[in-house]
Design a binder for these strands. Structure first.
Lengths: 201, 201
DNA sequence: CGCCGAGTTGAACTGAATCAAGAAACGTGG
DNA sequence: CCACGTTTCTTGATTCAGTTCAACTCGGCG
């Protein structure tokens, strides 16, 4: 116990580097190179981190808080994705193509995040091939998440989709508005409300 | 005209290399390395290229024909993806994770394809970082395709989804059974049949 | 010719959307 | 600290897209 305290207290690692390391272990030198192009930021609820139509040149690791990726469909706000603590968020359609993005990103809580400029990481890609691999594995991970979500739509009823979301982010309905959750699930807010009142019994 | 014939006939480039080059131009040496681990195959209609539960270690470029990625949901055959000429097909969930796959792959026509063993390409990744980038861009391309499909489900009615599929593969209903197309669109065969008879008028 | 698989059509049913109204929660100024 | 307006959530009634089950048609083929 005492030892635990001694070892844990003084050095607080950049949690974004920890995240990267969990994907591909990288050596000290590369860690330094990445650390140098990483910025920690604390941002308040409702910050619009990224706006539709812009070209996205950075991605973010969430240390704390929750981000919502959304777009407008016939003027209505539709949620495409939630990212919470320990996850990455970005306008990935733009980031990896250089085209303007379809998505907005909004912070749904006071948030602590680590941002990484993509044009700077490109230079690290050149210098350290291992980082190229990191990019490949990151996009792969995102692909698999999207694949899961696709299967969920193909397979499951609205109620099942809601239940699976609750497994991922149990307190989601306390953290973001119900309408945002509903559009993420692909259903109307009224229907989600009814599902919830059904589950309560 | 005469010149066209003269130049086109004798040298037929590996079209899979052309495809790779369109993603990232690679030099002769790397082309050779890839060419050495690529196999051309002609396979008949209904070949089961890959079976659910197996671990997928290769991917395929389709020179001719059409492949169908599918799974079983409550014993019923459900199409997850169609790939046709000029596209890649693989059990991508397994290929990039090493886990067993959820998907089957079936050839819906007599098909010419170029197959590439993934464990062999890994060694090329080590030797040539550019190929690592190729992998990253390929998975990125697939991510964006899946993103499109996801949007289609979130956005569009069954009829709109069918119309957009017809833009991609206009003769799809002549090439595969109607039920396969229906499950890809996430609707019943009967409903697709009704949509089609509606469009005819 | 008769069968068989694929596609179509009809009728009843269901999950979920929409529209409309009411209840709760929330924030702000007095 | 309460009264008010605003926003969010719930509930009810109606409508609609799409499903299911069952019967029928059509074309190919042994």
């Amino acid at each position: 116990m005492q030892f635990g305290l001694i070892f844990n207290c003084p050095k607080k690692m950049n949690p974004f580097l920890e995240y990267l390391n969990s994907i591909v272990p990288v050596n000290e030198e590369v860690q330094m190179a990445i650390s140098n192009i990483t910025v920690r930021r604390e941002l308040p609820e409702n910050t619009l981190l990224f706006k539709q139509g812009d070209i996205c040149k950075e991605f973010h690791y969430l240390e704390k808080g929750i981000a919502r990726v959304f777009y407008y469909k016939d003027g209505k706000d539709v949620t495409a994705w939630f990212s919470s603590e320990g996850q990455i968020v970005s306008a990935i359609d733009s980031l990896f193509t250089g085209q303007s993005s379809f998505y907005n990103i909004q912070l749904a809580e006071n948030t602590v995040l680590w941002s990484l400029q993509f044009d700077k990481i490109e230079t690290v890609f050149e210098a350290y091939p291992i980082v190229e691999r990191l990019g490949r594995l990151m996009i792969t991970q995102n692909y698999l998440l999207l694949d899961e979500r696709m299967k969920l739509f193909a397979f499951c009823s609205a109620e099942e989709r809601y239940e699976k979301l609750l497994v991922q982010i149990p307190d989601i309905t306390q953290r973001v508005k119900l309408g945002y959750v509903a559009s993420y699930l692909g259903i109307s807010q009224e229907h989600l409300s009814r599902i919830r009142s059904g589950l309560r019994k």
